[in-house]
Amino acid sequence: MPEIRLEDVRFAYPGGVDVYPEPGLTLALGDGVTALVGENGAGKTTLTKLLIGLLRPRAGSVTVQGEDVAKATVAAMARIVGYSFQNPDDQLFERTVRAEVSFGPRVLRKPVAEVERGVAWALEACGLKGREEVHPHDLGLSERKWVAIASALAGEPQVVVLDEPTLGQDYPSRERLRSLVAQLADMGRTVLVVTHDMDFVGEACSSTVVLSEGAVRYAGPTAAAFADRDLVDEAGIEPPHVTSLARRLGLGDAVSERAFLAALGR
């Protein structure tokens, strides 16, 4: 059974046109790490907000882990889905990093021991150790982004949805993110990452969904996501650098360093 399922989903912002044209968006995602990519305005953020119920579809159905999102409040969905907003300033409202990160598990009324475990793990995994008492507003964009991610993780949700976590991250930060999503996948969680960073997609995401103008253009293993050059162009994405290099060397379509080296060694 897929972890996340959208069926014929239609949605329009007030006064706007349909984000997902006829016949609506249909998509099934399994566990592991999935990348959601596509040009600006393709409808990625809208899709992620539908998953937790912050936006409600005009038609069609959304199910997450068997739960019909239409029948649940956003707060109820928050038990299952950890969500970090594209813009951390839309998400952060507490006065210290610790208060911010522990807000979720606290209002979900988890046992104290569980709250402490979840918060400690999230702070550690997001590189925020030692920053607990800082005001989130006094952090730079990249660190605010990390606070937002930690807040989404502290409740130990089964499904993790991160909207552009790679935004404004330097190399060590991206490495940390890569090991974080790998760790989550090892723990059996489902991770959906919206990103414009194709190198990250190639290295860290086993599956990829390409969305363009509100329609799913590709859904499947990342290794084959960049094979169709026309599709790649239309969706406003470019293959990972390592893929371009592999192609020029006649080594096929490797999407990650590891695949590249394997192809080289053959």
């Binding site: 937790i52 912050l54 409040t73 956003v74 707060a75 928050a78 038990r79 969500y83 907003f85 839309d90 998400q91 952060l92 409202f93 807000f103 979720g104 598990p105 209002v107 979900l108 807040s151 409740g155």
Partner: peptide, 16 residues
């Protein structure tokens, strides 16, 4: 509205 969305998404019941 923005703050409430952030709080709902973290599990605070604001509806009902």
């Amino acid at each position: 509205g923005r703050i409430q969305d952030a709080q709902r998404a973290r599990g605070l019941e604001t509806q009902g």
